[in-house]
Amino acid sequence: MSNIIYYVSFIILGIGIYGIVSQKNLFKQLISLSIIDTAVNIFIVALGYVEWGEAPIYSTITPVANFVDPLPQALVLTAIVIGVGILALGSVLLVHINEKYGSLDPDEIRDTREVVE
């Protein structure tokens, strides 16, 4: 039962994968990708939790170390920034697709393509 946060992040991950495979709309696929990112980030932060540990910052409240593992947090910081970059890139690609084919649905795109080519 203590592992519930792992299960939660796995379920979010499963939702993301389900979304990518089941959804036709390309924008929804991008959102699903971002959901997967989020799930993995939650999971990684959870991996570093030490019971009764505090946020890993030396301050007036916590002058001596009794911290959770800070390294996964640092990794997640990097992963979040990378995720943002990919999300921005994906959305501008979608703007392109929408301009070229007038739709974000693969079926309609295929029809337009056949007409064009």
Binding site: I20, L26, L30, L33, I36, G90, L94, I97, I109
Partner: peptide
Amino acid sequence: ALGAFKYLIFGGIGGTMYLL
């Protein structure tokens, strides 16, 4: 853009797995 987007979706999943 369409090919690139396909690659982005596949590559995004691949990158996440590498992180895991």
